[in-house]
Nucleic acid binder design. Structure first.
Length: 105
DNA sequence: CTCTTGACGCCGG
DNA sequence: TCCGGCGCCAAGA
């Protein structure tokens, strides 16, 4: 297991800040960093995503990525992330994080 | 420097 | 809605 590259550190930092109950698409992370692309982010998550809330990063259409789909859906549901009616994907329209901290009461 | 590899995104059909 | 195809970008060989 090689150490995270500087770019990877930036990606992981963003992911670590996603509030519970909200999500980001791979492409969103890249745009917030204003660097790289969706695939680069995916590559980082596959190698070093284990230390951050990886289930809060999903595809642009709201479906969790790859082999962890089942696990991800479980966790998302557990933290009350808005899901589609059939529960198979995240409701991106309401769950997408804008990069700002949640409004507190 | 070139080529390949992905937990991706978008645009048709 | 569900595919297929092409573009995308960091990393490593």
């Amino acid at each position: 297991m090689t150490l995270p590259t500087p770019y990877a550190e930036e990606v992981l930092d963003i992911v670590a800040r996603i509030p519970a109950g909200r999500v980001l698409a791979y492409g969103d992370v890249a745009r917030l960093l204003d660097r790289g692309g969706p695939r680069s982010v995916g590559l980082v998550m596959s190698r070093w995503g284990g230390g951050v809330p990886w289930w809060r990063v999903v595809r642009a259409d709201g479906t969790p990525a790859g082999c962890h789909a089942g696990q991800a859906l479980r966790r998302l549901r557990a933290e009350r992330t808005p899901l589609s009616v059939d529960g198979s994907r995240v409701d991106m329209a309401t769950a997408r994080w804008d990069g700002r901290w949640p409004a507190r009461s």
